[in-house]
Design a binder for these strands. Structure first.
Lengths: 342, 342
DNA sequence: CTGAAAGCGCTTACAG
DNA sequence: CTGAAAGCGCTTACAG
């Protein structure tokens, strides 16, 4: 079955291919009569323009890329551990689809790889999910294509569009909630306070809440772990059970971590929220599934993806010309993992 | 920064663009000396061929598509509920990447949409995740591009490559496990035994195990629900608590359903596995996170994605010319949601 | 308002 | 072994 091309349409409508292109692109004033004939031909022949050809001649692919950190040579494991990405990608995809863009996903190992990918596929724009080296951002800048960064606080980051979340407020809400429930010995679990600006922000909120309540900051109550995995949550949970410090409330930087901690506590015969009240962060779909279900700071991740997608597309279509930073709101969702202190 | 093209390389190497193309494609015998000069030029100029152009002239895009059922006009909600898809897509992506293909994801609303997408983007192959109408498959056949179907049992399905799982054996393993633990009153929870062939197969396994053990089949112990969601699990769980039939073991067609059921049982003050032993299906990442963690029939979903990807790419590259059906193995993973009957 | 022609960056018979 | 030329399916100054 031979593919219908613009020539076929032109022939059928008895005009030139150029004219067909004009009406399809809404460019120039084509007479109504001609327009009608072309549209009819398109209809009859069931014609759909070849994006590859359009892409080549317009130098625009209608394709955006979402870059993920590459682990073990494939984004697979990232997806497996980080339920968060999943929903984010869906959000982006959904706005892209509505605006006639397709979206591709790729893991980025090194800056060269990223650049090549953009060149190879003529990507119109990029969304970066996760943290990358400054070197990469320099490359990006040189590439000079619309780019939006997610959850970055680094300085050189202002050169791009940004979507982030009110992390400080999130940390504050979680901590305040525990304080309101009567907890006084509240721990904070994060990946790394120095290398993760996001966690640092949340920590600021934690400190602020403590301070407001006249509670001191006990450095012994701060737990750091390498990255956000269930297993790391497990480890911290075990540590907490045998800890030589009083501790009844735990603020966490991620649901997955919180779930791991709860699981470990339960295994050691502890009750949540009976013995420990725990707050997560993100409100993943699964936070509802666990027992106890998780009290958490919700960020609307799909909405975040949509926002990033719209920002990017606006920039591609020159609707917004200046770099913007959008901060998404955050909300405390109270479920079963927290309760009044005994 | 102007893009480096094949002409630039040709000029630098003092050959024709055609020759550059030859060496890059390993076609025809180019003299070693020429080859060396070309390769050097490529290196020096940091040249990467434009896939868009290649795609247009070769009529091959090095792009494969994964089609998902479209819910609410976007695949977003599908992803949100079906943690399964997520891992599958990662598997496909990972083999595609290794074989120099990129992969795109799209929701498919109707057959036309699907066809247009293939034409628009010159997709080389398609993977279908989920169930679609026979009408769609007819369209597909007409499109005549390599296609692999996942988990289908319908007859017209033999016209394509297939990847499925040993569903019957899975149902058997789950049921046998409960029987071995002393359970005699074992329920079966599925979506729809008539409209879902996958569930029917698993049900066959369930029946077989009962029969082998000399246990009768009680139709009152079969629960059907519309689709696989946590909420539907919740509903069935509630129903089970107040059921007028003895029931201590539950075989389920999905982890998400099982988790919902457990949650509902726990809410009503029941113990799992104390009062009920429950077996899931899939072994999603999160099955480890719940309390109790889930005994389940594991299918290696990432591996399934990889298999589908390889099948598709083999077919695209004419390595395999005949339609194949691959059946993936299944394995019982015993965790905390099942125990000896009291 | 409409069309001929050149161009986007590659590939591939064909000729030599 | 190498290259000139036509072609893939579009778009877009430019001319009329």
């Amino acid at each position: 079955m031979k593919k219908t091309t613009i020539k076929d349409v032109a022939k059928y409508a008895e005009v030139s291919p150029a004219t067909v292109s004009y009406v399809l692109n809404g460019v120039k004033k084509v007479s109504d009569d001609t327009k009608r004939r072309v549209l009819e031909a398109v209809e009859v022949l069931n014609y759909y323009p070849d994006f590859t050809a359009i892409s080549l001649s317009k130098k625009k692919s209608n394709l955006i890329g979402i870059m993920l950190p590459l682990v073990e040579d494939s984004p697979a494991s990232v997806f497996k551990n980080n339920l968060y990405y999943n929903e984010f990608v869906s959000g982006v995809e959904s706005v892209a689809r509505n605006r006639k863009f397709d979206t591709m996903i790729a893991g980025v190992g090194n800056p060269e790889e990223c650049r090549n990918w953009v060149k190879k596929r003529n990507l119109d724009g990029l969304i970066f999910l996760g943290m990358f080296s400054q070197h990469l951002y320099n490359e990006l800048k040189a590439l000079n294509i619309p780019t939006v960064l997610i959850d970055t606080y680094e300085e050189y980051t202002n050169l791009f569009d940004n979507v982030k979340v009110n992390d400080e407020h999130g940390g504050y809400l979680a901590t305040k909630h525990l304080i309101d429930l009567g907890h006084k010995d509240i721990g904070f679990v994060a990946t790394s306070l120095i290398s993760s600006p996001v966690d640092t922000k949340r920590f600021e909120g934690y400190k602020k809440a403590l301070q407001e309540a006249g509670l001191g900051l006990d450095k012994k109550l701060i737990f750091e772990t390498k990255d956000i995995t269930f297993d790391n949550g497990l480890k911290i949970g075990k540590k907490i059970v045998n800890y030589n410090r009083k501790l009844t409330g735990i603020v966490t930087v991620s649901d997955v971590l919180a779930i791991g901690i709860i699981k470990a506590l339960q295994k050691q015969g502890k009750q949540v929220p009976g013995d420990y009240s725990i707050v997560g962060f993100d409100d993943l779909t699964i936070s509802n599934y666990t027992t106890p279900s998780l009290t958490t700071v919700r960020q609307d991740i799909i909405e975040k993806g949509k926002t990033a997608g719209n920002l990017l597309l606006n920039s591609i279509e020159s609707i917004d010309t200046e770099h913007q930073t959008v901060e998404m709101p955050v909300e405390l969702i109270i479920r079963e993992s927290t309760q009044q202190r005994n």
